[in-house]
Structure formats: C-alpha cells, structure tokens
Design a binder for these strands. Sequence first.
DNA 1: TGTGACTTACTAAGCGCATAGTCACCTGGT
DNA 2: ACCAGGTGACTATGCGCTTAGTAAGTCACA
Lengths: 237, 237
Amino acid sequence: MAKKRQARFTTEDLEGLPELEDESPMLWDESRGEVQRRLLTAAVRCFASNGFHATTTRDISGAVGLSPAALYVHFPSKEDVLFEIIRTAHARALAAVTDPALTGIEDPVRHLWALVARYTEWHARYHVAARVSQYELAGLSPEHYEQILETRHRTNVVFRSAVERGVTTGAFAEVDVKRVARAILSLGIDLVRWYRRDGSDSPEQLGEFTAQLALKMAMTPDLDLGPAPRPESTLAS
Amino acid sequence: MAKKRQARFTTEDLEGLPELEDESPMLWDESRGEVQRRLLTAAVRCFASNGFHATTTRDISGAVGLSPAALYVHFPSKEDVLFEIIRTAHARALAAVTDPALTGIEDPVRHLWALVARYTEWHARYHVAARVSQYELAGLSPEHYEQILETRHRTNVVFRSAVERGVTTGAFAEVDVKRVARAILSLGIDLVRWYRRDGSDSPEQLGEFTAQLALKMAMTPDLDLGPAPRPESTLAS
DNA sequence: TGTGACTTACTAAGCGCATAGTCACCTGGT
DNA sequence: ACCAGGTGACTATGCGCTTAGTAAGTCACA
C-alpha cells in the first residue's frame, strides 16, 4: 500500500504560505520564457516545502495550471528542473560577491564587511530558492552535482581570500583563515534554515548584523580564559 | 518509464565512505535490541547520503542483511524510523547542553564557552545523524514534526538565556541577545553540512574554536566603520 | 491572399516499473 | 508447544515519462 510520498503540504497550501515567500520569481534569466519561469518558481516552492523526491511532476505543473506533460516541453526531466534552480542560485550568489563594486574595495575591513553583508542579504532575499540549493543537492545527478561543487569552491575562495588579506595586512587579528572563513560562510548560509520574510529582520538588517559578527570574528584576538576553572574555591586562600 | 529514485550512492558504496563515518552507532538507547540499533544506524547512513524519500526499505534492511519485511518487525513504518532518528538526536543534543555540569557554571563567560563547545562537539561527533535531523524534517508527519519543534525551542532557550545572562551581568557587550544566540546556534549546527571525520578538525578542536568565536561575538562591542566610504578621495582636501 | 509545410505549446491517457507495506508461513531456542 | 524474529511472494498504488494527437501561430511562395 504505497503511501503518498508526502502530506504535510498540499499544492493549495503552498499559495500564500508566508515562510515560502521570497524573491525567487526574480531569479531566472530574462532569456527564459514566461512559462519556464513560472514552472521554476513553482518548483522552488514545492521542493522547499516537501523536498525534491516528495514533489511530483504533477505538483509542479499543476501549480501553474498545466498538465504534467507540459513540463517536458520545457525541461527534459524533473532532475533538470532541480538542476536549473540550484545552478542559477549558486551562480547568482557567486556573482553577488564577485561584483566589481565589492572586489574594488581597498580597505580589508570594509571589504569583508561588504562581502558578508551582500552574501547574507542575498541568501535572505532568495531564502526559499537558496534553501533548495543547500538541502536538495542529493537529488542531483553526479555530473550536475560535480558542477555545483565547483561553483561552491569558487565562492569559498572569495571569502578565504578576503579574510587572508585582512590578516596579512594586519587589519585583522592573527586568526585561522580557513576556519574563520568557514564560520562566516556558515552564518551567511545557515539562515536559509530559519529565515522568514515575515520575521523581524529585513535582508539588509540581517546582512549588516552578520557583517558585524564577521568582523568581530576576524578582528578580535583570541580570549585567554585563564587558569583551569577549579570547580569550588572562589577566593579562599 | 519511472526512473529509480536515486543512483548517486548504492548500498555497497555506503560501506566505509569516509564522510558517512561518525559515532551514531552509539546514539541509541540500550533498551533497544541489537537489531533495531543496527537498523537505525543503517538508516542514518542511507538517509544522510540519499535523503529520506530516495531511500527504500530494501536499502535499510539490506544494509544489515535482512529482508524488507524484517523492518516491520521492529518499526511500524519507514517514517517511524526517521522519527526515531530525529527524536533521539534532538533529545541527545538538548541533553548535552542541559547537563548540570554545564548549567552549574557561574561565570557567564565560561558558561557560554562550555555550552558552545559542547554543542558543537556533539554535532561534530554525530554529524551524520545530526545532518539527517536537520535536513530531513520534511519527511516527518505533522504530529512528529511538531514534537521536534518543541525540543528545538527548548534548545534555543538554553542558548538565549546564556547570552542574556552575560549581557545583564555586564560580562558581555550590549549585544542583541536573540540575534547573537541565533548566530551561535548557526555555527554549532551548520557544520553538519560539511564536517567530515577524516578532516583536520577533531570534534574537540572544532568545539573549542567555535566557542572562541561565540565569545568574540558576544563580548566585542559593535565596530563603527566611521563615515561613509566615499569612493575616490583619499586625503585630498 | 490563400495554402501547405512546419513549429510551438499544450493535453488526455496510460505504460511500466518501483515501492511501502502485508500476510501466510517458517524456524531455532527455551 | 510456543513464540519472537524473520522470510518470500504479493498487493495496491504512486509516479516519471512517453505517446499520439490538437490547436494556434508562422512563413515561403504562387
């Protein structure tokens, strides 16, 4: 008695669910047709709420008022829909942090600040698509997966270089570059797990706040907690 | 021509794959039988590498040398296997940070340090099971999902309180408690996305490093970047 | 302007395979 | 003799994708 793959959210639920509200309709290239873009946007919402495998081709096509077969006019397979989403999102996020307006900033402090603010803001703005891009990688074919990994690596390098520059120029403390860069990326990415557009933080505010945290992590020297915290004994001789 | 749900990792691949190595075999209650625990451990690996919906009951049972039907001797459904994994992992992680040895620490600085170190270390140690717990929530029934949310909330409160105490006692800077607590949790959780047991960080090292970052975030006052960074103009009057 | 050839976007119907879960039966230890 | 734990064969159903066909648009050209 094979169960339906999912039930938590049905197609009609997806309309107007506040945690699925983001700007992903604006993500797709202009070169794509109207219908393709609407399919991609619908797929983002389905994949985000129920997962790739729990989403049927009927869910996606039905959400834009088409029959299941219509999907195959525009995309060769369901996996390709996922790939287009993930590829586009990764490319856009990378583009956001390689914008010349950012890379041109001389001061390492301002540079890292702007980098983190941008990256965080991007993820907040497109958090539903970004969530799919982070959580549904297992749905990709090995070839497509490999391609995405490459983009991720390039993104990592951007952050690592920014931290490195601050350390070598002395603008930052002498921190562990790789680890700090990793932590900064974590802050920028992990928000897709919980961010909601109807919460109290706007993408800009969250970006600025996270950028502050990144600077604190990069610029503050390590704290020494002092001698072992002996359980008892406050100041008795 | 319905395709097989997945292909990226077949069952035999899962043996000895280094990124799927963690301590989840130690997670399960002693009260559970040997076979149940082996099934849960196998399920963790399958779910982590291919996702809940892409994992078949044959994958799980086959991985411990049993027939598919044997799964139903020990668990009422595949969803229940997922729930047991997620429930146990969330409960253990909460237990780790409510350990009296931690909650008893008077000094807010040492307290937060220990809290973050413990939490991070836990996630690193059980990163495969933790990954399933974070990424496969969509596979749960609404009732089970609700139950997990409750545990998550309790965990959040632990961190928020720890940060709050430091701020009110003046041990920390006057930071935004909710946001900082959220960022700290992000650091502790997001590592499940990339952590590997065969990497360069041991769980303890990662815990200590993240704890340092948490203190920097909580104890450093906000930086003022000064006046607007006018594009040109260095020091020309 | 009319016509036939071709294209684009779509649908209805359904194939064929995969899968969660069931059930009657088996089996070894107490 | 019993029964917990396990099996092989099966069912019911879901789902990705295909196929055959429709309707409307475009274009070359007589």
